[in-house]
Design a protein around this nucleic acid. Structure first.
Lengths: 140, 140
DNA sequence: TCCTACGATGGACACAGTCCAAGTCAAGAA
DNA sequence: TTCTTGACTTGGACTGTGTCCATCGTAGGA
């Protein structure tokens, strides 16, 4: 994730302790935190950090293409730092756990021209829904 | 849409003027209204209808499987009455317009077992993103 | 027609996110 | 090293979306 900090510095980002902490919290695979979760974890490292700063920083990371915003449920958006490896999401309908997954085919290729209604189609996001192992067991 | 009312009556729904109006508002293809939009349109037909009733009714229609809830942007959820014909969504990144689309392939088949992490996968939703014809033109 | 349980109401509340004026500080200049 | 300045942070107010609840109203069966 320090490469992220390097890239950001290279893009002229002013490096502040707040931004460092947010980047640090977003480190790792299968990380899909809400803004408030990011704020809570960041506050453990830097207690005075404000909610507004977390929102600002996440928004900037998204518009720089370093983090992906995921809307899995119409509640809080989640932030996925794994932006440089194309992938989709598998969501547990019960507990909301999210995993990154890699289908064998790009769904973009499967939308025929006559189903595009004149749109310039740029991307396809797939959300797979089901039950995670623990919720499957709990429900059985 | 009167088949909808019939089906609901058959399921023991008490038929009220409020529920009739909500069902009426949701009639048609390519309808993807937010709860507040449904409330606004319903209020034109039945001015006293309350927001709570619209939310309740939409929630019931969703849990009966008559309407699909769509989270395209992490803002307001949208309600899609076209629940009996499997389809996906094409969303304009600029104006938020939503169209129903039918890809030539089911993405569920393209998620290999080793990418399922023990989940019981039940469904796949695809959101295609791009620019609608008018926004493409406006941006050109 | 009467009853009553189910549904509607509206206001309070909770949560997610945005905005803004004022204060702070990173990093380049001297 | 200190100075300077504009970018960044802060906290609180505000908006939009959705939920909850006590109370009132009414659909539809007896």
């Amino acid at each position: 994730m320090s490469d992220l900090l390097e890239r950001l510095r290279g893009r002229g980002w002013r490096m502040t302790s707040q931004r460092r902490v947010v980047a640090q919290v977003l480190d790792g695979d299968h990380v899909h935190l809400t803004a408030d979760e990011v704020h809570a974890r960041a506050a453990q490292l830097l207690p005075e950090i404000s909610r507004a700063t977390v929102y600002n920083t996440l928004g900037e990371l998204v518009s720089l293409g370093e983090v992906i915003e995921v809307a899995t449920d119409g509640r809080a958006r989640r932030y996925d730092p794994n932006a440089h490896h194309p992938h989709h999401h598998l969501v547990c309908s019960t507990c909301g756990t999210v995993r990154d997954v890699h289908p064998s085919r790009d769904p973009l290729a499967d939308l025929p021209a006559e189903e595009r209604f004149g749109f310039t189609v740029a991307a396809a996001e797939v959300t797979y829904r089901g039950l995670c192992p623990s919720c499957t067991q709990a429900g059985a």
